[in-house]
Design a protein around this nucleic acid. Structure first.
Lengths: 112, 112
DNA sequence: TCGACATATATCAGTAGTCGAAGTATGGTC
DNA sequence: GACCATACTTCGACTACTGATATATGTCGA
């Protein structure tokens, strides 16, 4: 894991989702739809492989498991490393977006 | 080209760089170092293949060519589509970063 | 003058992470 | 009985990035 490599959108939003509270995979998908205003729908393939990777990188960990209606729910939560990583990544996005915004403003273009 | 797919960091920063003024490839690398405060260094392989792709997607176009000290400089500029795309992508990043920031704040974590 | 470094572009093999689809399984609704 | 929502697993394909190598000119210091 190179911790200076940028997180890609799905992974970033998974961490963001888990920053609110522990959630299981399927609930993360629903939450990401909400916070992206319906624009980002994470496919199940992306989700579970990303969760595995974030887990083995120590950014998230298993919170608990539940069985509801005979269906397993595996809840994950952010680790301290995960929270730090999300904070660093957020600062990065904010800086980049600010640079783009000011340059676009000179061109007379406003972010949609 | 799926225009709903997110731009990855290098491509986003290349567009941001060209939003300021027309630049040639090598100058883009230097500019990106500046706007990212030294944190993002785009490799030449990434740069020229990304430029080719952004060009064939119509987001940038050739501004002019110069020869300085027997070395070619090919300048590119943003197209209108490129500016619109950068604006849309910037809005996306801003939304996501805002969601993460407010959730991190509840955890008592501030973006670095 | 020799070597190192900056400028400037081209190209390619390898890889990481995502995408999309298929599979397994339960339960509710029309 | 068909369909959709819930919930996780797995896998092949794809795309953009990474890192290295190549070519070539100009500058600067030892």
């Amino acid at each position: 894991m190179k911790d200076d490599a940028p997180l890609r959108e799905p992974s970033y939003l998974i961490l963001t989702s888990l920053a609110a509270e522990p959630r299981h995979g399927y609930a993360v998908i629903e939450d990401v739809k909400q916070i992206s205003e319906g624009r980002v729908v994470i496919g199940v393939g992306t989700l579970y492989t990303a969760i595995d990777r974030l887990h083995s990188d120590g950014l998230i960990e298993v919170d608990r498991e539940e069985v509801v209606d005979s269906r397993l729910r595996r809840y994950y939560r952010l680790t301290n490393d995960g929270a730090r990583r999300l904070a660093a990544e957020t600062a990065r996005l904010t800086r980049h977006a600010a640079a783009a915004t000011s340059r676009l403003r000179v061109l007379g273009v406003e972010p949609a």
